[in-house]
Computed example of a mutant assay.
Amino acid sequence: MAKSDEEQVADLVRNWAAAVHAGDLDGVLADHAADIVMFDVPPPYEGVRGLDAYRETWPPFFEWQAQGAAFEIESLEVTAGAEVAFAHALLRCGTPQDFAQRPAQRLRLTVGLRKEDGRWLVAHEHHSFPDPGEASS
């Protein structure tokens, strides 16, 4: 039986997160649109536009992550229509020291996708952390 659109998108996001955790740049780039727009935690504040610019953001993250940081999906919700979908997730993203200081901190991920030629592609990706001064738990 064919997977539902929601299941396909959930698999795509899980595969992306596994590739990020593994430092697999090709896996991270897979299933991303050429015109992707990403709003990330670090600058530039106006976001990163296009697959080449998106690609350039990952090596510094991989270097940081190689120092023992986690990147693990804790929760994932997907809504999918016939041609567009979105997903939001909470991830454990940080070093053991980060979690010792802020155990409840989670990376917030929102992904917007569109279907092209029967294939889901990430067109927008947004990563954020809450302001630790405002976190209540």
Score class of each variant (00 low, 15 high):
residue 89 A to Y: 03
residue 108 R to H: 05
residue 54 Y to I: 06
residue 90 L to T: 15
residue 61 F to P: 04
residue 82 A to R: 13
residue 95 T to S: 14
residue 67 Q to C: 00
residue 68 G to D: 09
residue 80 A to V: 05
residue 85 A to Q: 10
residue 77 E to H: 13
residue 89 A to I: 10
residue 81 G to Q: 09
residue 86 F to S: 08
residue 47 G to Y: 07
residue 79 T to I: 14
residue 109 L to Q: 14
residue 100 A to F: 00
residue 77 E to A: 00
residue 110 T to C: 14
residue 96 P to K: 01
residue 113 L to C: 09
residue 69 A to K: 03
residue 81 G to S: 14
residue 101 Q to K: 13
residue 60 P to R: 05
residue 72 E to L: 02
residue 93 C to S: 12
residue 117 D to L: 00
residue 108 R to S: 07
residue 105 Q to H: 03
residue 66 A to F: 06
residue 58 W to F: 06
residue 67 Q to S: 15
residue 94 G to V: 04
residue 115 K to D: 00
residue 103 P to G: 08
residue 117 D to Q: 11
residue 50 G to K: 15
residue 83 E to Y: 01
residue 63 E to F: 04
residue 50 G to S: 01
residue 109 L to G: 06
residue 62 F to L: 06
residue 79 T to E: 13
residue 110 T to Q: 09
residue 100 A to D: 13
residue 58 W to P: 01
residue 78 V to W: 02
residue 58 W to K: 03
residue 47 G to T: 13
residue 103 P to V: 07
residue 88 H to L: 07
residue 89 A to G: 05
residue 53 A to F: 04
residue 75 S to Q: 12
residue 79 T to M: 10
residue 103 P to W: 01
residue 70 A to Q: 10
residue 96 P to I: 00
residue 60 P to H: 05
residue 112 G to W: 08
residue 101 Q to S: 11
residue 108 R to K: 11
residue 82 A to L: 06
residue 55 R to G: 02
residue 68 G to V: 13
residue 73 I to S: 01
residue 65 Q to F: 07
residue 106 R to C: 05
residue 54 Y to P: 00
residue 118 G to V: 09
residue 91 L to W: 05
residue 110 T to K: 12
residue 59 P to V: 01
residue 58 W to L: 02
residue 91 L to N: 08
residue 52 D to L: 10
residue 45 Y to H: 12
residue 83 E to Q: 11
residue 77 E to L: 09
residue 74 E to K: 11
residue 66 A to I: 08
residue 99 F to K: 13
residue 74 E to Y: 11
residue 109 L to I: 14
residue 52 D to H: 08
residue 67 Q to K: 10
residue 102 R to L: 15
residue 57 T to F: 08
residue 52 D to A: 14
residue 48 V to E: 03
residue 103 P to F: 00
residue 74 E to Q: 15
residue 114 R to C: 09
residue 97 Q to H: 10
residue 64 W to P: 05
residue 71 F to R: 00
residue 105 Q to G: 01
residue 110 T to V: 12
residue 59 P to R: 01
residue 56 E to Q: 14
residue 87 A to S: 12
residue 55 R to L: 07
residue 107 L to Y: 02
residue 98 D to F: 02
residue 64 W to C: 04
residue 118 G to Y: 00
residue 114 R to S: 03
residue 100 A to P: 00
residue 97 Q to Y: 03
residue 67 Q to Y: 05
residue 64 W to G: 05
residue 65 Q to A: 07
residue 99 F to H: 07
residue 45 Y to I: 04
residue 100 A to L: 04
residue 62 F to A: 09
residue 92 R to Q: 13
residue 57 T to K: 14
residue 87 A to K: 08
residue 108 R to N: 03
residue 97 Q to F: 01
residue 86 F to A: 07
residue 93 C to H: 10
residue 70 A to T: 15
residue 72 E to G: 05
residue 81 G to E: 05
residue 63 E to N: 12
residue 82 A to I: 02
residue 118 G to P: 07
residue 88 H to D: 12
residue 61 F to W: 12
residue 83 E to R: 04
residue 87 A to V: 13
residue 116 E to Y: 03
residue 112 G to P: 10
residue 82 A to K: 05
residue 60 P to V: 05
residue 110 T to N: 15
residue 76 L to M: 10
residue 74 E to A: 10
residue 82 A to T: 09
residue 76 L to W: 02
residue 77 E to I: 07
residue 70 A to V: 08
residue 67 Q to P: 02
residue 77 E to T: 14
residue 85 A to L: 09
residue 85 A to R: 09
